[in-house]
Design a protein around this nucleic acid. Structure first.
Length: 154
DNA sequence: GCCAACGTTGGC
DNA sequence: GCCAACGTTGGC
């Protein structure tokens, strides 16, 4: 059982969008970074939990919790010419980009803002808070996960 | 909208 | 393989 954090711009896809999907489930498509892909492809397991992080938002922060519902499969948008995630160098025989399916678990009663996370000494060292960090999928340490869950439930 | 911090691309 | 140029992410 592992813990993750996955970013999405809420204007593109938010925690509310996930909660209102059929089955409250969605393919986490559009990731085009090898490190992030490798984690989804090689490490995520069904049942793992992930924070849904709103990036490029006002304010940015942790908006909810989701569960990995299906292990890695090819990201269909890489083959769709009309998609902004289309990748002409990828083929169905050798798909370059993989993704996972996620299911809604809960929405935070109030968003846990990045600013608040930064100011919390218990979270120093968290990958999300490292300067220059741009990864859209990253692991969360167990102790950080439980600490943040307790902040959410406060 | 700015810009720092990356990541990728391609000429050499 | 180096590295300059370019593109992207994401906080502010």
């Amino acid at each position: 059982m592992r813990y993750w954090l996955m970013k999405s711009e809420p204007e593109a896809f938010s925690i509310d969008d996930l909660a209102s999907r059929p089955q409250q489930t969605e393919l986490w498509d559009g990731v085009r970074n090898y490190q992030a892909r490798n984690m989804m492809r090689d490490e995520m397991q069904v049942g793992d939990l992930a924070f849904f992080y709103h990036s490029n938002a006002k304010p940015s922060g942790i908006a909810g919790v989701m569960r990995i519902a299906r292990t890695a499969c090819p990201d269909p948008t890489q083959f769709e010419m009309a998609s902004k995630y289309y990748d002409p160098t990828s083929t169905p025989d050798a798909p370059r980009w993989m993704t996972v399916e996620v299911t809604f678990v809960s929405k935070c009663p109030q968003l846990l803002a990045l600013e608040q996370l930064k100011q919390d000494p218990a979270l120093s060292g968290m990958q999300l808070l490292r300067k220059g960090n741009r990864l859209s999928v990253m692991p969360v340490a167990k102790e950080h996960w439980h600490y943040i869950m307790q902040l959410i439930e406060k």
